[in-house]
Design a protein around this nucleic acid. Structure first.
Lengths: 228, 228
DNA sequence: GAAAAACTTACAGCGATTGTAAGTTTTTTT
DNA sequence: AAAAAAACTTACAATCGCTGTAAGTTTTTC
């Protein structure tokens, strides 16, 4: 069963939504506290997040952005703010749907179903600049093409994507490859890295792996600018 | 560059749309004749279809349904029909977005960009009942999990999915596996089929392959009903 | 119950991926 | 400019998973 988390501060509205969604066959949870929402949200690992924009303290935009940075979970925004500006902004930072209150039940349900449908198979995709990586199979999607990376190359790329723009140490990489970083096999790691680099250039990817002398490696844009 | 095909019978509106989309950096084509639209559409292999509902002769719904049956191309509906009934129906038969005229340019562009973003990596996915298959890598997506099928199993499953509910002959299958159906190697084919069946049951897929004595095989629902 | 079709299982060959080894090149330091 | 450290390259052999082969058994149909 698909799990939906509702983020809405007004109690009456929240209950109504919970009811509606439950009747429609979803498992529903609501966020009670509004501190560290983004973090709490991810821990519930929902299939979809239904988000109000006007919340105490924190902005709904901020939550949406945080969720989208850290996960591929779809976000549907349901709000009373009907300004075009807000809608465009929401879509820009990655919201998957923007609905304004009042919203007919049928429309809400239809749009939610629609978003969920589009997310089938995306649950485990990591996002890079201009490409996607499936964490389970190491299938790489780029430019309407797809390739399955050899396991080791996939594991390495995965570590880089999870690390964001940070420097990744050789320990981290060895850990990912062999489950231990006790004795680092510099050579074997080097060879595997070279292989990944080669396939990345062959695929004309927009990010590349560069060494950080003495510290490890890091993922950058082709042209040398930082990512994101 | 992403290619968008516009299906709209009113000339003024059509030109305005073409203009807007071109300025936004898309390659735009328009459909002139409205016969065999669905077929013509697919031949243009667009990245997205922008569709009006009120067309001479044919219903936009029908076009949308046909496109969705035969391809994974996203369809955005832009129409003057503002009945909730129409919107629900459109979403039900697989439309990815439903917008009503008049529609602000910014909103149209934002929604189109949004849909295109969600379709990254989906260009080569075939749809089965409850699962997706990548035609290039034979990566299979099911229940938030993914597996890469061995090439032969992938090729076989691909043939079944392309064939729809029809019976697939052994010639077809041999053709897919070895590029020829001159001498059918009954045995090798049998073994490969068995392997595919096994992984399908292991993955608890909702469709299965059943023999049609003397004719070949066909893909059905678990419970024996026909598919969709 | 006999024939045809469909299926099962084990094994050996082959190819792709991986770790190893022995280098060379680049960068930094003195 | 020489030496040392870090980063990289290339080729080869072991390994693992996929495939076709062979020799069966089981199921269906008449």
């Amino acid at each position: 069963m698909k799990r939906i988390v509702v983020v809405e501060d007004e109690a009456f509205m929240r209950e109504e939504l919970e009811n509606l969604l439950q009747k429609a066959g979803y498992e529903v949870r609501a966020v009670d506290s509004f501190e560290h929402v983004a973090k709490n949200l991810l821990e519930m690992s929902p299939n979809l997040i239904l988000l109000d924009l006007n919340l105490p303290n924190l902005s709904g935009f901020q939550i949406c952005r945080e969720v989208k940075q850290k996960s591929p979970i779809p976000v549907v925004i349901l709000t009373s703010r009907d300004q075009m500006r807000d809608e465009l902004h929401a879509l820009e930072i990655g919201a998957d749907e923007y609905l304004t209150k009042p919203c007919r039940k049928e429309r809400l349900l239809a749009r939610i179903a629609n978003v969920l449908k589009r997310y089938e198979g995306r649950a485990n995709l990591l996002e890079g600049e201009g490409f996607l990586l499936d964490r389970q199979t190491y299938t790489l999607y780029i430019h309407d093409a797809s390739v399955v990376l050899p396991k080791n190359q996939g594991k390495l790329l995965e570590v880089f994507l999870l690390g964001g723009q940070k420097v990744v140490t050789k320990e981290d990489l060895c850990d990912a490859l062999w489950g231990t970083s006790e004795f680092i096999d510099e050579n074997a790691l080097q060879v595997n890295l070279t292989r990944l680099k080669k396939t990345m250039t062959n695929l004309q990817m927009h990010q590349k792996i560069v060494p950080v002398r003495g510290e490890g490696y890091r993922l950058m844009m082709e042209d040398g600018t930082d990512e994101a």
